[in-house]
């Protein structure tokens, strides 16, 4: 119990941050027309590619003689980049099609 309380106390800023972000996420998505669900999913998909930064950190601190970490880290950065670049490009391709005829608007 004490461990949990001190855990919360030590990380209170994070807990605020996480809580607020959850509300932001819900608010952002709740009133979106269904036609945009697919691009939105794809866009969110690209954003979680931010995990790439973790892969960069992990590969960046790997010892030059630690081949396991180098190889796995390299793969991590590679697939993370795939997620980011692929995600944003696919989303852009989807949304490009919505753009051509700007008249009409959202219905």
């Amino acid at each position: 119990m004490e461990q949990i309380l001190s855990f919360i106390g030590n990380n209170i800023t994070y807990i605020y941050l996480i809580g607020l972000m959850i509300f932001v996420g819900i608010e952002l998505i709740s009133h979106v027309p269904s036609v945009l669900h697919t691009p939105l999913m794809s866009g969110a998909n690209a954003i979680h590619g931010v995990v790439l930064i973790g892969a960069i950190i992990v590969l960046g601190k790997a010892d030059a003689s630690d081949y396991f970490s180098l190889v796995v880290g390299f793969v991590g950065v590679f697939v993370g980049t795939l997620n980011v670049i692929g995600g944003f490009v696919v989303t852009d391709r989807m949304l490009e099609m919505f753009k051509k005829k700007p008249k009409g608007g959202n219905k």
Binding site: Y14, L17, I18, M21, I22, F23, V24, G25, I26, L28, I29, S30, V32, S34, H37, L40, M41, A44, N45, I47, H48, V50, V51, I53, G54, I57
Partner: peptide
Amino acid sequence: NNVMLMGGVLVGSAGTILTVV
């Protein structure tokens, strides 16, 4: 790492609510 945390949580909650919608 704040940007990972923010981006991750944002997608986590947005993705969940999108699933429900």
